[in-house]
Design a protein around this nucleic acid. Structure first.
Length: 338
DNA sequence: TGGCAGGGGCCTG
DNA sequence: CAGGCCCCTGCC
């Protein structure tokens, strides 16, 4: 078990920010069971000092502060199960105290996964003082982190995401993991790792179609083949900078600009990537288009107006505009409109 | 109840 | 550029 005091970190905000579909909230009461499990499994270097994980976390969970709010002002108080690759983690948060139910040797993986080394206060503070909308969005979602997720998993996940709601994406990802991924047993329960390219390539096209993947089935089928043949080289992809990775990804069947940007942002940690989905599109038109002179915007072709607005208003966040994109997405989806 | 719109899009003509 | 695509959910 590893405990950290963390600022600009909120598990619920991360789980709801739409970048990760395998983070599931669990009742805080369930944690004591997991904690005991960990206590048994992990040998503490300082002997038996009565370091009771279950007690630690129930103490932490008893912190005052409601769990009903989604904004930064509310004290965080929640627990989640996260599956990443073949790893599974239980993590809990009470205020700024975050408990990772893993051994010290596993912690570096999750530290990297949650991007704990990066100072997100710097991002929040960098928001243009003249942009009141973005100020509100950043304040509201200031606990979001850009996760460092597996590229392969992100490619398939965001191909699946086309024209799907978040609950549908989650269930499809679970579905293909259960069907094709390796079993992970944790705390007496079974979970499933996301399938490797090799595992998923064993799926017949018809099987994928039966999983309700719809027209995405043929994209996934082809991408599996491209990865297995080496045509889509994941290691090469990882070595590319953002523009190169963005262009490379779009050469493959089923991957367009939106999906490529999501893979860059959430799988390659190119945090300058700025995916424009329907929510962001709405915001650009609602909050930003009106800040342009109509004579200027009207000269831009309809299909390129979004790109134009992103360039105009977000290029000042060079190299990390994707963080702003996440604040906006989360704010639009979860802030109560007034 | 059923019909319609829309979903963190992309491919084809 | 328009459609079409698979199919599910939310809404009226």
């Amino acid at each position: 078990m590893v405990i950290r005091e963390l600022r600009q970190f909120n598990l619920r905000q991360i789980a709801l920010s739409g970048q990760c579909f395998r983070m599931t909230e669990i009742p805080v009461e369930e944690i004591s069971g997991a904690a005991e499990e960990i206590s048994k499994a992990v040998a503490f270097p300082r002997g038996s000092e009565g370091f009771d994980a279950a007690e630690e976390i129930s103490k932490a969970a008893a912190c005052p502060g409601g769990s009903e709010g989604y904004g930064a002002a509310e004290a965080a108080h929640s627990a989640y199960r996260v599956i990443s690759g073949s790893r599974i983690l239980t993590v809990a948060q009470a205020g700024e105290t975050v408990t990772f139910f893993c051994g010290e040797e596993e912690f570096p993986y999750w530290e990297n996964y949650f991007d704990l080394q990066t100072d997100y206060g710097r991002f929040v503070e960098s928001v243009d003082g003249k942009d009141a909308y973005l100020q509100r969005a950043a304040a509201f979602g200031s606990g979001i982190r850009i996760l460092r997720q597996d590229v392969w998993e992100m490619i398939i996940t965001f191909v699946i995401s086309q024209q799907k709601t978040i609950p549908a994406i989650r269930s499809l990802v679970e579905g293909i993991s259960e069907r094709y991924g390796s079993r992970i047993t944790s705390g007496g329960n079974d979970f499933y790792a996301f399938p490797t390219p090799c595992q998923l390539s064993r799926a017949a096209l018809e099987e994928l179609q039966q999983l309700k993947l719809g027209y995405r089935a043929k994209y996934i089928y082809q991408i599996c083949r491209d990865v297995c043949s080496g045509a889509l080289d994941l290691e090469k992809l990882k070595s590319y900078d953002y523009p190169a990775a963005f262009a490379y990804l779009q050469q493959f069947y089923g991957i367009g600009g939106k999906v490529a940007n999501c893979v860059c942002l959430f799988g390659l940690h190119h945090i300058g990537a700025f995916p424009v989905d329907t929510w962001i599109h709405k915001v650009l038109m609602k909050e930003y288009a009106c800040r342009c002179r109509p004579s200027v915007l009207d000269r831009v072709p309809r299909t390129r107006q979004c790109d134009f607005l992103v360039k105009k208003f977000f290029s000042e966040y060079k190299g990390y505009a994707g963080v702003m994109q996440q604040y906006i997405f989360y704010y639009e989806r979860y802030a109560v409109p007034r």
